[in-house]
Amino acid sequence: MESQKHKVKSADRVLDIFELFEGDKDSFSLTEIARLLKTPPSSTYLLLQNMLERGYLQTDKTGKQFQLGHKLFTIRNKRLKGSNLSEEFQQVADRLFHEVNETVNLSIRLGDKLLYIGEKSSTHFLRFTPNTGDMRPLHATASGKVLLSGMTSEQLREIYPNDVLEKVTDKTISTYSGLLAELEKVNREGFGYNMGETVEGVQCVAAAVLDAEGKAAAAISISIPVVRVTGEVWEKVRVSIKQASEELSRKVYR
């Protein structure tokens, strides 16, 4: 006799919602989700609100577009602590620390934000150290620019539907056209730069950690207070971060 499959409809719907994000789209409206899952908007709304309250989903600034929430990435980050990526990052970060003694971070993209998932802090009294779990606007960070640089124009427009971008400091890129020009520079040079765009007086350089398909799965960066930046230091950091990104890509994903 064939064994009966037991299903919980609400659990199935939650998993169906998560699986919508397997494609290229980063956000969906209530109407889109209900249509794609063929579920009543009223019950879909209640389910989405439950997932929002628990942190498994989040909304954009309009409150109408649903994105994956921080809770999934918190869980993922805890799992990463025992993963090859986390282990290899710590080894690479330790070496970078001894080479330059500046803050090293590992980051991934979460919707239109950069999520820090690993860190190694400088021992200097004056330093910039984002904590694991902190988030920043992608376009205002070196790592965020690296992660944006491989996207299509359609994917970028989904994240930035408006031509005016959020300013974090006076130096933050504030226009969509300015961002496109910056991303061309990233693609050309292989580095992302942050010249006081997140925190005044702090500069950062980042490079991509590439997966087996050659796409940016994460980014590794070094942040330096501008008072310690010289031409020699900047060039040394660029060389170090390039070597570190290539090493992580090779050891984790190849």
Rank of each mutant, 00 (worst) to 15 (best):
F125N: 01
K113P: 00
S249Q: 12
V226L: 12
R228F: 03
N50K: 15
T175I: 03
G190C: 11
V239S: 15
K38I: 09
L47K: 07
F21I: 04
E166Q: 09
L52E: 01
Y193K: 06
T169A: 02
G82Y: 13
D16C: 09
S107A: 15
G201E: 05
E182P: 08
K9Q: 12
T103V: 15
D112V: 14
L110W: 09
F89H: 01
V205W: 01
D211H: 14
G150V: 13
C204W: 01
P137G: 07
N50E: 02
R254H: 10
A140I: 13
L138G: 04
E32W: 12
L52Y: 09
K38R: 14
Q203T: 02
T39D: 11
R136S: 13
G82I: 12
V199C: 00
V202D: 08
V227H: 10
S174D: 06
S29Y: 12
A212V: 03
S249N: 11
R228N: 06
Y176N: 01
E247W: 12
E246S: 14
A217T: 07
S43D: 06
G231M: 01
R238F: 03
D16R: 11
E184S: 12
D170A: 03
A206H: 00
V229S: 01
Q4R: 09
Q67W: 15
F73Q: 07
L148T: 10
Q203H: 00
D211I: 12
K64Q: 04
E87Y: 08
D163T: 10
L126M: 05
M151Y: 15
L114T: 12
Q203W: 02
K242I: 11
R54D: 00
I33Q: 02
K61T: 15
Y193C: 06
I224R: 00
V92M: 02
S107F: 13
Y56M: 06
S3W: 07
T129E: 14
G111C: 05
E2L: 08
L37V: 03
L96C: 04
I224E: 14
T62Y: 06
G192Y: 05
A244T: 10
Q91Y: 05
R136L: 11
A208F: 05
L96P: 02
H139N: 08
E2R: 07
K185Q: 14
W234E: 07
V252R: 05
Q203E: 04
G150A: 06
R127K: 00
T152Q: 04
L15S: 09
R157A: 03
S122N: 04
T169Q: 03
H139R: 04
L72Q: 06
V202I: 09
K7I: 04
L156T: 13
R157F: 05
